[in-house]
Simulated scan of single mutants.
Amino acid sequence: MGRVTGTQERIDAEAADWHAAIECGTADRQAFERWRSSDPAHALAFIRLSQVDAELSYLRESGLGERPLVDETPPAPPALGRRRLLTIGGIGVVAAGLGGLGWSIAAAAHTAETAVGERRRIVLAKGIAIELNTDSRVEWRHGDRLYDIRLLRGEVMVERAAGSESCRLHCGRSEVDVAAGARINARFARSGVAVSVLEGGASLRTPGPSGAIPLPPLRKATIADGTLPALSALSPIEAGAVTAWQQGQLHFNGENLEAAVAEYNRYLPRPIVIADPAIRQVRLGGRFSATDPTEFCQALREIYGIAARVEPDRIRLTRG
């Protein structure tokens, strides 16, 4: 029995070493595949470890609150012995994962997402944090002192403090290198991807021969497939509108009603519908709750004579 235990502990230790090398970006892929495929016990041990690592990462993320970036440090995982750590994972997960284990799983990617109307803040490392807006999804990996973050859906704010590791944001086919001390907002929209630099700076790379494009503070880049990025300055009011979602608000400054309703519907399980085409171009402004349109509808009624009728599956706007 002691021999069996010793053999398993050796395999568990090798699996932990491979996992650490992959996380750090120093693993030899071919050597790892040879080790994994040489014995089913190797694959079993590695899957168990990967599963437990994912669970610990989730616990780390979900325990974070709405805190400023300064001096943030992710909480340490529980102190577990290597043998204990490797035996927590379930055999059912191991059996299900054997056939499809590939390098993408071994690379230990982490994902997070939000539901409609939800926000979520995650500290990736000391000095690096992301915040997801409504109905958003991101994936990130860490290797070779670089955090690679990929926006898959919705909107994200990336914050990188001075002295932290390098950070790169992927949005579709574009890449944004986030400078130390920067705060960057990225969002998928109908026209493509909008990248706004609120603080610090960034460098944008898109497919094509344009090369790296520097983005200083208060600069916005709109990127559509097949075209060069459109650059524009951000006024303090516009920058406030970009970041308003972090306070659970929407800021409108001259947008028409059609655009304002489209923005609101990103946050509402019961959408607002414009039933009268004649009011679509009404221009409006103000600051409102992103998830509760009560004051917004009240302002439409009092200022513009637009009535809001609450129905079971929608809020219907008509000329009052």
Results as ranks from 00 to 15, higher is better:
Ala107Ser: 11
Pro312Glu: 06
Pro269Ser: 11
Ala278Cys: 01
Gly285Val: 00
Gly63Pro: 02
Ile184Leu: 07
Ala275Leu: 00
Ser57Gln: 15
Leu146Tyr: 03
Gly97Gln: 11
Lys220Cys: 14
Gln247Trp: 08
Gly201Ala: 12
Glu131Leu: 01
Ser235Tyr: 02
Leu317Trp: 03
Ile213Asn: 12
Trp245Lys: 11
Asp148Cys: 03
Thr73Ile: 11
Gln298Arg: 15
Glu55Arg: 15
Arg82Asn: 13
Ala308Cys: 04
Glu255Gly: 01
Ala76Ser: 13
Ser104Glu: 15
Ile11Met: 13
Leu86Ala: 12
Thr5Gly: 15
Ala194Gly: 12
Ile274Arg: 01
Cys167Pro: 03
Ala20Val: 11
Gly143Trp: 01
Arg29Thr: 08
His170Arg: 15
Arg153Tyr: 08
Asp28His: 09
Val282Lys: 07
Arg67Asn: 08
Ser136Cys: 00
Leu198Lys: 02
Gly117Glu: 12
Gly248Phe: 07
Leu198Met: 12
Ala290Ile: 06
Ala189Thr: 15
Phe288Lys: 05
Val261Lys: 00
Ala107Trp: 07
Leu59Ala: 15
Val197Leu: 10
Arg205Gly: 13
Arg283Gln: 11
Glu118Arg: 00
Leu169Lys: 10
Gln30Cys: 05
Val158Ala: 09
Arg270Lys: 14
Thr294Met: 09
Arg137Gln: 07
Asp135Ala: 09
Ser37Val: 02
Leu317Thr: 04
Ala108Ile: 10
Glu23Lys: 07
Ser174Thr: 09
Ile130Asn: 03
Met1His: 14
Ala212Gly: 10
Ser38Ile: 08
Thr87Tyr: 07
Arg266Leu: 08
Ala96Pro: 12
Arg219Gln: 13
Glu118Ala: 02
Ile223Glu: 01
Ala107Val: 06
Ala224Lys: 00
Ala45Ile: 04
Ser38Pro: 03
Pro207His: 07
Glu118Ser: 00
Arg219His: 09
Arg67Gly: 08
Ile274Gly: 02
Ile105Pro: 14
Ala233Asn: 13
Ala79Phe: 11
Leu231Asn: 09
Gly6Lys: 13
Ser196Leu: 02
Leu284Met: 06
Tyr304Phe: 09
Ala290Thr: 06
Phe296Gly: 04
Tyr264Gly: 06
Gly226Asn: 04
Glu155Gln: 07
Gly200Ala: 05
Ala290Cys: 11
Leu80Pro: 05
Pro40Trp: 01
Glu113Asn: 13
Arg219Met: 10
Ala202Cys: 03
Leu231Trp: 10
Arg3His: 06
Asp313His: 07
Ala96Phe: 14
His142Cys: 09
Thr291His: 04
Arg67Asp: 06
Ala308Ser: 06
